[in-house]
Nucleic acid binder design. Structure first.
Length: 515
RNA sequence: CGGGGCGUAGCUCAGCUUGGUAGAGCGCUUGCUUUGGGAGCAAGAAGUCGUCAGUUCGAAUCUGGCCGCCCCGACCA
């Protein structure tokens, strides 16, 4: 018997039940995805995390191209005056802007001999580091559009943006984050509305089929709307503490920004008209959403389609004389697997040749959430088989499969894991999305039993709603909940009685606590 | 911006009340032993104790200023 302290039952401590926010941080640390940087509110995305982003980027980008969009790039810095062009927009972002006021540094010797760098060369007009690019892209669109024949303009940009958030949380809300922002201009209102909806559907499809996230689609209430938008559509996900995360948004901007930026064209009748614009985006927040939705108390669990590596091969080399044969077999297996495809892309396979105790190495990959772990040792070589472990099943479960059989079944296994994660997340979401009809029920639903250390509670409350923005404000103050989504679809447009005001209502809303 | 907490080795922290010149665990390096499972033993490397000033013969420890970070609220993809 060992005197060493027993290893905890789970790789991650605390568990989700014990302390969800801390669990989230620990999963990120244990999987080596990212870390906080020396710059306040900013993160360093490490290879394992950035790989996920690259996969998201590549796969989404293909969907954007398939719907007719082209990529372009606009400046990081936006003239201060541009931001002021749209009243609601400037009000929405003014409180979180980083401003560039100087363009030069001067070294000044201090009395103690040290050197202090002092900004000089003040700019006539300060620049704002883009919190979003509607205004500067709007200015470009104004130059590019002359005739209805120039429309629609369908542009996307992959970029970083900066919002000086009060309370950063890695991946979910960082001061600088990576995203894509689509910006389009159209001849008619109907076309722009169709675009707004089309891109929401792209996001919904991507979330479901690539991230294994079931999302609600619908519209934001006026108080949750993007500053300057006429309407904001959203996909809303539920994560394992039953809170909501806005995973993507698509905005119908009407003619607000075209008027502000002067995006005008000569129409079919010869009259000068303002274009109808949209914008839509998803960010590195998707990674945070993934983590919170799928991971467990042993660490990250990645959907195969976006996993940095889908299969890791672990050579088991207990004896020196068989070591080389095992390593060669692993390389050969990796090569065979990489020649196969899953979801239209070559399999991503890594051989972990590091000379570490087997258990240590195995646990590392569990914590990194790699979908399939394959062990190959001398005994397997003799039998011509491999040991296969799935991240979505028990950690000790291991299937011994003839090598050739495993190779041909690998894409299918990944598909099964991908589908399993979506099914599991859907069951969870549905189990915690409940129909509520009166105020008391609603309050009970969103009130933890233990006020000092709130347990995981609540979820998505589906209610008949006819309230105002003020009513929504009051509910946020009282219970910390907001309307996450006014979902689309006939089943959400039933006549009823508002649970809050008692007035007749025509539609249902989803309330939840949110990230 | 309000309310709490904290800055000591790569990480997590002890030491501070009662000043005497730096510790543990994990991690890292090396060797031996192990090896189908987050290994054992041994040796080793690694810290101007956030910063500036004060008190003192002497400060991680006492006093004051400053800086930074984390958590909880308001704001938010």
């Amino acid at each position: 018997m060992s005197n060493a302290p027993a290893k905890p039952a789970t790789a991650i401590s605390p568990t989700r039940q014990e302390e969800f926010p801390e669990w989230y941080q620990q999963v990120i640390k244990a999987s080596d995805m990212a870390e906080n940087s020396e710059v306040r509110g900013c993160m360093v995305i490490k290879p394992w995390g950035y790989g996920i982003w690259e996969n998201i980027q590549r796969q989404l980008d293909r969907m954007f191209k398939e719907t007719g969009h082209s990529n372009a790039y606009f400046p990081l810095l936006i003239p201060l005056s541009y931001l002021a062009k749209e009243a609601a927009h400037v009000e929405g972002f003014a409180k979180e802007c980083a401003v560039v006021t100087h363009h030069r540094l001067e070294a000044q010797k201090q009395d103690d001999g040290s050197v202090k760098m002092v900004p000089t060369g003040e700019l006539a007009e300060p620049y704002v580091i883009r919190p979003t690019s509607e205004t500067i892209i709007g200015a470009a669109f104004a130059r590019w559009v002359e005739s209805y024949r120039d429309l629609p303009l369908l542009i996307n940009q992959w970029a970083n943006v900066m919002r000086w958030e009060m309370r950063p949380r890695i991946f979910l809300r960082t001061a600088e984050f990576l995203w894509q922002e689509g910006h389009t201009a159209h001849e008619t209102r109907a076309e722009a509305l169709a675009e707004t909806e089309q891109m929401l559907r792209v996001y919904e499809t991507f979330a479901r089929d690539h991230l294994a996230l079931p999302v609600l689609t619908g519209e934001k209430s006026p108080r949750e709307r993007f500053p300057g938008a006429e309407s904001t559509l959203c996909i809303e996900a539920m994560v394992q503490d039953r809170k909501a995360i806005q995973a993507g948004t698509s905005h119908f901007l009407g003619q607000n920004f075209s008027t502000a930026s002067g995006i005008q064209f000569t129409g079919r009748s010869g009259a000068r008209e303002f274009a109808w614009t949209t914008s839509w985006g998803v960010s590195t927040r998707l990674i945070g959403t993934l983590i919170m939705a799928h991971s467990d108390d042993d660490g990250l669990v990645l959907p195969p389609r976006v996993a940095t590596q889908q299969i890791v091969i672990l050579p088991v080399t207990p004896k020196e004389d068989s070591k080389q044969a095992v390593l060669d077999a692993c390389d050969a297996l990796a090569k065979e697997l990489r020649a196969l495809q899953f979801a239209g892309e070559p399999l991503r396979v890594q051989v972990d040749r590091r000379d570490l105790p087997g258990g240590t190495r195995n646990w590392e990959w569990i914590k990194k959430g790699v979908p399939l772990r394959i062990e190959v040792g001398p005994r397997d070589l003799e039998k011509g088989s491999v040991a296969v472990s799935r991240r979505d099943q028990g950690l000790k479960e291991k299937a011994f499969v003839p090598t050739a059989e495993f190779v041909s079944s690998a894409p299918g296994l990944l598909e099964s894991i991908q589908a399993g994660l979506l099914a599991r997340a859907t069951v969870f979401r549905d189990a915690h999305m409940v129909r509520l009809t009166d105020r008391e029920e609603f309050e009970r639903f969103f009130t933890p039993r233990n006020a000092d250390k709130p347990e995981i509670h609540g979820g998505f409350a589906v209610v008949d709603w006819a309230g105002s923005s003020e009513d929504e404000d009051a509910l946020q103050k009282q219970l910390g909940v907001t309307i996450r989504c006014l979902p689309f679809g006939d089943e959400w447009h039933q006549p009823g009685t508002c649970f809050y005001t008692g007035q007749p209502s025509t539609r249902r809303a989803v309330f939840a606590k949110a990230y």
